[in-house]
Design a binder for these strands. Structure first.
Lengths: 221, 221
DNA sequence: TCCCGCTGGAAACGGATGTTTTAAACATTA
DNA sequence: TAATGTTTAAAACATCCGTTTCCAGCGGGA
């Protein structure tokens, strides 16, 4: 290893550039020149650009999943197998998301990447994340199910994705929004401020009254 | 004009391809060949690829803004200059969004495009939309302000973007989500179903209790 | 000492991209 | 008819892209 490992220098540079411009708009030449490594190094170490993209995500998601699993284990123990309140579940998730990048990466970058993973077509990425990290999400959803027994399954499914949209959308577009907010309201917002604002909104969204059932033909149950 | 105008044939093809794969991932050659139009036609009629992208958005946003302005005019008249309830404002916006593409374009495409406009870096697009259509949004925000006087300005700003995230995120990723939902819950969801589900959630989110003030120095409130 | 596997550097490969140009046909209108 | 705007065709342009190749250095093990 030189001063810092070539591999990590590539990853550090790539994640920032990807977050700023997207995947297709970031060339390997831009990455390698800004990282001061050889162009061939990416294909040598990762094999391809797609693999680089996945590696960037893995560096965030791998520690996230183990931490989140641990946090959920702890939560289940503390509640003795009983139902865990929704607020605690959301709180735990938020805390874990905050902890992981705090170690040495940027939360902003992490969120932008998540936003990109959803919006950019990049089929391979969605599949990779689904296959590699789907199980944590499944476990979380099951716990949320027990915490909100009054919600029909389909309704809970959609609401979870509603709030997922809120979080990813807001945090991934944070810079632009923050600029407007600071200009108009002379108020500096940190990511933690945002999460504090997010909490009551998310809880209220999950607990909103059910919509009028508009099934074409009502059927029993 | 031939069978259908070359310009509209380009726009029709481009908007679908852009929505499916994103801007950078869609080449002019793909567009023109699928539209059965000459490659040079795009640069002849629009000048550049950037201008094509903006034209695709303009075809949706131009009729949207005039309709939305009219709807807001009507709403203000009906309430005699008084305060318009939040529910009616949201309802009006939803109705307008639904009406515009219904004429001859796809709502799904429209929503995917909006999602792309936010997520894809494409600085020029965000600037174009902001400059060209910012005023309607400003007017809407001002009406929402009067409808929610108890909300601090900054809080309302963030909550509006929270729900904006929910809507755009959900509707732009609709296809993927719908596939999962139908598989897991044997339930077909139309866009209108989704909006029905969205309404109580959005209202609850806007009316959520204020977060604990975490200002560095607490001030009486 | 020789050899081998790993890393780095420079260059080139093959292909795709946005754009421009030149040319000829076609349609519409004055 | 003449002029004008539109469309097609084919080719070339200049870049930029991801990827591959070749070779020089380097390390430690035989």
């Amino acid at each position: 290893m030189a001063q810092t490992d070539t591999v990590t220098r590539i990853l550090d540079t790539a994640e920032v550039l990807f977050a700023e411009r997207g995947f297709a708009e970031t060339s390997l030449r831009t990455i390698t020149s800004k990282a001061r490594v050889n162009l061939a190094a990416v294909n040598y170490h990762f094999g391809s650009k797609k693999a680089l993209i996945q590696a960037v995500f893995a560096r965030y998601l791998d520690p996230f999943t183990v931490r989140f699993h641990h946090a959920l284990d702890e939560l289940e123990v503390r509640h003795d197998g009983g139902v865990i309140p929704l607020e605690e579940l959301l709180e735990t998730m938020a805390r874990t998301v905050l902890e992981v990048p705090a170690e040495k990466h940027s939360l902003k970058v992490f969120m932008k990447l998540l936003g990109l993973a959803y919006s950019q077509a990049q089929g391979h990425l969605r599949r990779y994340i689904q296959d590699e990290y789907g199980s944590v999400f499944t476990r979380f959803v099951e716990l949320v199910r027990r915490a909100t027994p009054e919600l029909p399954d389909a309704e809970r499914f959609w609401r979870l994705h509603f709030v997922l949209g809120t979080v990813i959308f807001t945090l991934s577009g944070l810079d632009a929004l923050r600029d407007i907010a600071e200009k108009d309201y002379q108020e500096h917002v940190s990511v933690r401020d945002l999460i504090r604002r997010l909490r009551p909104v998310v809880v209220a969204a999950m607990n909103a009254p059910l919509p009028p059932s508009a099934m074409p033909r009502a059927k029993a149950s």
